[in-house]
């Protein structure tokens, strides 16, 4: 049965996205710098980079945890893929994603079974991954010789898309379907909304925790491997500054740091908003500070609107106005 309330979680992310597009279009006026097909391609390219991380980190935020280690995993996975995928890019991808999955499982296991805060555990993971990537590469940037792969990944498909952006779009669609249609989504929201309640209702909390961290690790690794291939090189640093945009995208998409809210599609919308802003402001010739200031203000506004105290104060103001 179709249910209007199912739309509620998407209202705000969609509104923010539309507002951003509208504002940029207005600023652009009739110059045609913003609404062009090359912009759509670059938006989707950025979407393909931030999307997997945002989805992984966003899912850990939904269950009221946080996966910092993705920042290290992206870099390490890139190095692993480039090092092992010399002859067969599939092998490199599998090695990278396998590593991400296993380390995610391990971190999730530690967090769930030893009941440790995820920030601490994944901060440890982040540092270990960074260190390992330095060791793997000897602190140098390493080249990937199979330029054909890089070319393939950079190719336009159907005008706007590329292989990485198509992959992540499919992943988002599949995850959103599973999340919306099956018990899994409800159980994850329950674990984030009230851990104790979920446990006493008989939900397998530990399994979900471990699974989510494995999911997040695997996605980050996939993202790192694809990035390494498409840039035809990998370096221990440089790729690790994805955490902040990913978290921002998740919050823009309706995920709350206090857990229990947010949907995969919302995260996709949030990522899209962020990508549109970045590419749009670039196209308009505004500097990257403008992007950061703009995103910062939007996040602040969302945080304020979310607060219950703010709404209570609004109610009081309304009451006072009616009196006078």
């Amino acid at each position: 049965m179709f249910n209007r309330r199912l739309l509620v979680p998407y209202l705000r992310p969609s509104a923010v996205l539309l507002a951003v597009i509208l504002i940029l279009a207005v600023i652009d006026g009739s110059h045609g710098r913003f609404l062009s097909s090359s912009i759509v391609f670059s938006v989707l390219q950025m979407f393909a980079t931030v999307g997997p991380i945002a989805l992984g980190v966003g899912m850990t935020m939904i269950i009221r945890e946080f996966d910092l280690s993705v920042a290290g995993m992206v870099g390490m996975a890139g190095c692993i893929a480039v090092l092992t995928g010399g002859d067969n890019p599939w092998l490199g991808l599998a090695a990278a994603v396998g590593t991400g999955l296993c380390t995610g499982l391990l971190q999730g296991f530690i967090i769930a079974r030893l009941k440790l805060p995820s920030i601490g555990v994944t901060l440890g993971g982040l540092l270990v991954f960074l260190g390992v990537s330095y060791a793997l590469t000897g602190s140098r940037s390493i080249q990937y010789d199979d330029l054909e792969v890089a070319g393939l990944l950079g190719q336009h498909i159907f005008g706007f898309f590329s292989i990485p952006s198509l992959i992540i779009l499919v992943i988002f669609a599949v995850v959103a379907l599973i999340f919306g249609m099956t018990k899994l989504g409800r159980d994850l929201l329950a674990v984030g909304g009230d851990r104790r309640a979920a446990l006493s209702a008989g939900i397998r909390v530990d399994t979900l925790l471990i699974g989510t961290f494995a999911f997040s690790g695997a996605l980050a690794a996939m993202c790192g491997a694809l990035l390494g291939y498409s840039l035809a090189s990998a370096a221990p640093t440089g790729l690790s500054n994805v955490l902040v945009p990913a978290t921002t995208a998740a919050i823009l998409g309706g995920v709350s740091l206090s857990g229990g809210t947010g949907r995969p599609l919302g995260i996709a919308l949030g990522t899209l908003t962020l990508s549109v802003l970045q590419s749009g402001l670039n196209a308009l010739g505004l500097s990257s500070y403008a992007h950061e200031i703009f995103v910062g203000l939007v996040l602040l506004a969302i945080a304020i609107l979310d607060g219950t105290a703010f709404n209570a104060r609004l109610d009081m103001l309304r009451l006072a106005l009616r009196r006078s």
């Binding site: 309330r5 409800r186 159980d187 929201l189 329950a190 984030g192 909304g193 009230d194 104790r196 309640a197 979920a198 446990l199 006493s200 209702a201 008989g202 939900i203 857990g259 229990g260 809210t261």
Partner: peptide
């Protein structure tokens, strides 16, 4: 202490954890 998840709907809370 109630085991109700505040961020879920009434429907989902009623069926929460049911086999």
């Amino acid at each position: 202490e109630l085991s109700i998840v505040p961020s879920l709907s009434v429907l989902d809370n009623i069926w929460l954890g049911s086999n």
